[in-house]
Design a protein around this nucleic acid. Structure first.
Length: 358
DNA sequence: AATTCGGGGTC
DNA sequence: GACCCAGAATT
């Protein structure tokens, strides 16, 4: 097919998406922010986060000048928190190293933290019209079906083939509209399940469709059993404030506030008692009981979270320990706190205790 | 080359 | 419940 790009572009003019919040301009900052938020995250999920973030940080300078805690708080609930940390680092690198000017080529853009080959190409194409190929989930699916590429696209060899194919299909001009067209086709017609082939401009060419194998391409990820883990978390309350712990920068929920985890060595019959509260936190508890457990599914494991409520005597003087890692946060300030989604769910339920059966 | 990073949409 | 989404960094 030698007119793939041309036909895709004309399809996009008529049937593509033109009114997403990050479309219509060439500000590399806004495009960058959207591309980062959209990594492994669907458009409808991103939109409210994007709007809020852009209102607070309208440009690179404001983002670079902000404390990372505030950036994390605005990212709370969106997941993949290394994205927020890298975004902040990159903003500071742009201000310090590039004189506040966003880098001008995909190669330079790819040198910033959190930006890989595909995201760099998307930014350069949208902002500067650079002729660079992208390879996201949409493009992989579209190419695998139309050109009949076999094998799991996450495999290195398959991915290399797809990159080569994507490069070979690039048009000489209107690259921005072309990559938008690829994503639009994948997101609106050539979807994972129930693709609308009858409306697809390539239905007659598509190898998957001609072979009646649309449901088999792209080749699905090999199955893998996900491990289960279980952990108890202390919900320590004192005078309308909860004790939270700042997690280390790397790893699960990096840089976010979480409930202190009760070490596995603490016996179950002790963990939720006033005696344990006194020995571990140094406070007496007037109320100590297990709350209802909840299950949280990550990409690579399932976590069963068992919250344990400890309400401290109001006349004690609780003192957060472990340096700055532990802090008392008023319940009224939780909306603006950088919490992972399941921790937010647990704390939200405190306002509606009947949700807990434990 | 394989694993590790969330959370939610969709079937 | 299974699978995937505008992927990148790490090992």
């Amino acid at each position: 097919m030698n007119d793939f790009a041309e036909r895709l572009i004309s399809w996009q003019r008529k049937h593509g998406r033109h009114d997403l919040p990050w479309q219509g301009g060439h500000d590399p900052y806004r495009i960058w922010l959207s591309e980062i938020m959209l990594q492994q995250t669907q458009v409808d999920t991103v939109i409210p986060y994007y709007t809020r973030f852009l209102a607070r940080f309208p440009d690179v300078a404001s983002l670079a000048a902000a404390p990372v805690e505030e950036v994390m708080a605005l990212w709370s609930g969106l997941g993949y928190y290394a994205r927020a940390r890298n975004l902040h680092r990159a903003a500071q690198a742009i201000v310090a190293g590039h004189g506040g000017e966003f880098p001008r080529s995909a190669a330079e853009i790819a040198g910033l933290p959190g930006i890989g080959r595909s995201t760099a190409a998307a930014i350069a194409a949208f902002a500067y019209g650079e002729r660079a190929a992208i390879l996201d989930g949409n493009v992989k699916r579209v190419l695998c079906r139309i050109f009949g590429v076999e094998g799991f696209p996450g495999d290195k060899a398959v991915e290399n083939r797809l990159w080569a194919l994507a490069e070979s299909l690039l048009p000489a001009r209107e690259v921005g509209r072309y990559i938008q067209a690829q994503m639009d086709l994948g997101a609106t017609l050539c979807t994972r399940g129930k693709p609308a082939c009858e409306r697809c401009p390539f239905a007659g060419d598509c190898i998957a469709r001609r072979g009646n194998r649309v449901g088999e391409l792209p080749t699905p990820r090999p199955k893998k059993t996900v491990p289960r883990r279980s952990a108890r978390y202390a919900v320590v309350l004192h005078r309308e404030a909860v004790m939270l712990e700042r997690r280390p920068p790397a790893g699960i929920w990096g840089g976010l506030l979480s409930l202190p985890e009760i070490p596995a060595e603490v016996p179950a019959e002790l963990a939720g008692t006033s005696a344990w509260a006194r020995s571990h936190f140094g406070f007496d508890a007037v109320e100590a009981r297990a709350l209802g457990a909840l299950t949280h599914t990550f990409t690579h494991f399932v976590l069963e979270m068992q919250p344990v409520l400890l309400r401290l005597r109001t006349d004690t003087r609780p003192r957060a320990r472990d340096g700055d890692a532990l802090a008392w946060v008023p319940l009224s300030a939780l909306d603006e706190a950088a919490l992972p989604a399941p921790v937010r769910r647990i704390l939200d339920a405190l306002a509606a205790p009947d949700l807990f059966t434990g």
